[in-house]
Design a protein around this nucleic acid. Sequence first.
DNA 1: GTTAAATCGGTAATTTTATATTGATAAAAC
DNA 2: GTTTTATCAATATAAAATTACCGATTTAAC
Lengths: 227, 227
Amino acid sequence: MNQTGTVKVVSEATLRRLPLYHRLLKDFAAAGRMRVSGPDIAGVLELDPTQVRKDLETAGIAGRPRIGYVLADVIVALEEFLGWRKVTEAFLVGAGSMGAALLGYRKFEECGLRIVAAFDTDPSKVGRRIHGKHVLPLEKLSNLAERMHILIGIITVPAAEAQDVADQLVAGGVRAIWNFAPVRLRTPASVIVHNEDLYCSLAALSQKLAGALKRDPAPLPAYPFSN
Amino acid sequence: MNQTGTVKVVSEATLRRLPLYHRLLKDFAAAGRMRVSGPDIAGVLELDPTQVRKDLETAGIAGRPRIGYVLADVIVALEEFLGWRKVTEAFLVGAGSMGAALLGYRKFEECGLRIVAAFDTDPSKVGRRIHGKHVLPLEKLSNLAERMHILIGIITVPAAEAQDVADQLVAGGVRAIWNFAPVRLRTPASVIVHNEDLYCSLAALSQKLAGALKRDPAPLPAYPFSN
DNA sequence: GTTAAATCGGTAATTTTATATTGATAAAAC
DNA sequence: GTTTTATCAATATAAAATTACCGATTTAAC
């Protein structure tokens, strides 16, 4: 937010590049470097130098001519900008295999996300722990979310149940939803929804591969593999 | 590919909307509908009608004035365009929790992806099956990929090992990589790489949430939850 | 010191993407 | 049969994102 109280809207594309810079810069810092230039970053990540500079500018990061940027400052500023410097608590709903996988991502905490509990309807899962996190019954979801002022909900339930879970999360006061179910959720405009739709992602890959194979066909499999 | 032999480049944004249309249209078909109009689709998905029509046009789909589109035709054309009508075989590398989650996605086959085997270095995993798929030793990866003419590789190993795995996949003749490891892979230009970087995704969510909270702050948690 | 080179900052041009407008078409209503 | 209406198609406009350019600045080389 700037002095006028307006919040700059940052493009999704920029938002997805910033963590790349952050990661690279952490590597540079670990290697003992103190400074970095826009062209440096652009070179490694194969991006346009101007774009890198504009992205950093968006995050409120300034450099100095001929010098570049002070590595430590940029890293801190990026974390600040991305909201990684204070941890936000989240509930994960759906303790299936994808849910379990996410519960195991330890580095999320470094990115400001702490999953404090999981929820599921399956009695065989409720009461157990997955990667150290309690699995609680779904009935308690919205109540607990409200009492604990949980701001982020992660949905890893089957598509058919996702909308219902989303409604409960919203009822519990959640402000952002990370949705791994392959459905478009209906939520109030005030709730941020981020869809991680692997089928859509796969579609993009498939289509590009199909195009590439048309240009340059692949031979047929010689040794079929029985599964 | 058109008659001139050129391949139309489709924007990533369009490519990610097409599966949404496909899913919706399958629902419509299941409900017994025979036709659909652009505005219909746009209404449900909250998109611009012109954009929907343009997307369909990109996929080579034509409609008729006042009629709209024939549902069955659009579904087939979308699947054709997305490369979903012929199944492509894939290897998955990294039988950790994310790998296991992906091995459990049964619907991938409907999207033209069949994961035929998994690979891992961990002796406790090798030789076992996960969701019915064999886990094989990593040493066999590039050799088997080549012999079986595997075109897609899915990387779900830790970041540190991802580049090595990518190299082996490329050596085995793989043409597309679906990369879940949080690193940018170095591959020949002919190989399609699709990054599914959850940390970048999370960053986008965090930043938007941070912005929303600045506009409309959340109360502090009243009941801390010990884990 | 002076010069040369590298890099940021701001602005402009380009390209891409999204949206609006208008006309043609065909079905349905009357 | 005529009119009305909904829709696709094509074109035009607007918005956004990317890339290019140029001047200012500061370090390093000589």
